Amino acid sequence: MIRLENLTKVFETPNGPVVAADDVNMEVPEGEICILLGPSGCGKTTALKMINRLIPLTSGKIYIDGKDTSTLNDVELRRNIGYVIQQIGLFPNMTIEENICVVPKLLGWDTERAKKRAAELLDLVALDPKLFLKRYPKELSGGQQQRVGVIRALAADPPVMLMDEPFGAIDPINREVIQDEFLKMQSELKKTIMFVSHDIDEAVKMGDKIAIFRAGKIEQYDSPDVVLAHPANEFIADFVGADRTLKRLRLVTAKQVCDADAPAVSRHGRAKDAHAMIREHGTHVAVVLDADHHPVGYVTEDMVEGASGLVHEFARALPATVPARADLRAVVSEMFAHDTMWLACTDDSGRYVGVITQPAVTGALGETYRRAGKAA
């Protein structure tokens, strides 16, 4: 847990004092990601750097896991904090393994333990240790180097991580991949993370909480859902954008919305049984499954009404399927691309888990607005 109390930073300049952080108060629960967001010069990076004392604070208190950090010296403090910046800063003359092992070795870890940790962390971000441990930074792409930069900060297993626009220099495609890998890693490691970003889409995707800064002050601190559904003022509304309802599609997965009880029939089943199931459920369509429970087609009520024979004789190919873990933005995109009101959802093995419809997506957005309203 990180708690900032009345955190203030005043810089003395030739033109007089400048307040970069103005009485900042916030608490980040253990195991959560808090995104610090706002326009350039708003104080978010200053607040971040005061936590590991790269910038000394003017006044206020910082607590990590309930301990007042002013009682720790710089070395003690930074041993418990991983720090990741946009300019990765890997040592070019060291292998990837050596880069990751730098901090553990400084902390007195034995060589075997440090090397084992390096291999485990590479595996966590989908870089095969057998291929990457002995390579040098110049042999990696920019995206791969950025992943190494992230896990290097995790090498000594710090409880807290500070990240200053860590994915900002990566192209959009690789950024999505790295974000996904990082979230997968965070789901296992549950670090407490403060993360500076300038990108509202990144904040919505990555954050458990968002703190939006303006002129050194926090204008709103809440979950992405509440910030998007109920911006605290006009500045927040303008900052998150007029399309904030569409941004909220990122916050709900297909699995949360899909109908697991929607009709599904075996391709070798009887057509009249499929018709009866469709009528009973009232959906006008049934997904057709193969022997491994993979969706391979569909039949409508009209197609099998009064029909004799087997389902596969009448079935048509599915326009597309979506993974149950996909967010609603991806689902809606597939629906528009294939001009359909519904899609079959699958698990990671491609097995059928239900059907998601456009009305269900609309209903889910309405429900999250209502929930956000109650939370606010």
Results as ranks from 00 to 15, higher is better:
F167K: 02
G168H: 06
G168D: 13
A169G: 04
D171L: 09
D171F: 07
D171T: 08
P172C: 06
P172N: 15
N174E: 12
E176Y: 01
E176T: 11
E176A: 10
V177Q: 10
V177Y: 11
I178Y: 06
I178H: 04
I178W: 03
I178S: 07
Q179D: 12
E181P: 02
L183N: 09
L183Y: 02
L183K: 05
K184R: 14
M185S: 01
Q186W: 11
Q186N: 11
S187G: 07
E188M: 11
E188L: 10
L189A: 07
K191M: 05
K191E: 11
T192S: 04
F195K: 02
F195Q: 03
H198N: 08
D199G: 12
I200S: 10
D201M: 01
D201A: 14
E202P: 01
V204C: 09
V204T: 13
K205R: 15
K205Q: 08
M206L: 15
M206Y: 03
G207C: 09
K209A: 00
K209C: 00
I210N: 01
A211I: 09
A211D: 08
I212A: 13
I212E: 12
F213Y: 04
R214M: 13
A215G: 05
K217C: 07
I218S: 01
E219W: 02
E219T: 08
E219S: 03
E219H: 05
E219C: 02
Q220D: 10
Q220Y: 06
D222H: 05
D222E: 15
S223M: 10
S223W: 01
P224A: 10
P224S: 12
D225K: 13
V226M: 03
V226R: 11
V227Y: 02
V227H: 06
A229I: 08
A232P: 03
A232H: 06
N233S: 08
E234D: 15
F235T: 09
A237N: 14
A237L: 04
F239A: 10
F239V: 08
F239Y: 15
V240R: 07
G241S: 12
D243R: 12
R244S: 14
K247S: 11
K247L: 14
R248P: 00
L249C: 01
R250V: 02
V252W: 05
V252F: 01
V252Q: 06
V252K: 09
T253Q: 10
T253K: 07
Q256D: 12
V257W: 05
C258I: 02
D259I: 02
D259T: 04
A262N: 03
A262E: 02
P263E: 14
A264Y: 01
S266K: 00
S266R: 07
S266M: 03
S266C: 00
R267E: 15
H268R: 14
G269Q: 07
G269C: 04
R270S: 09
K272I: 04
K272E: 15
H275T: 03
H275L: 07
H275S: 06
A276F: 05
M277Y: 06
M277F: 04
I278W: 06
I278E: 10
R279G: 13
R279T: 13
R279A: 13
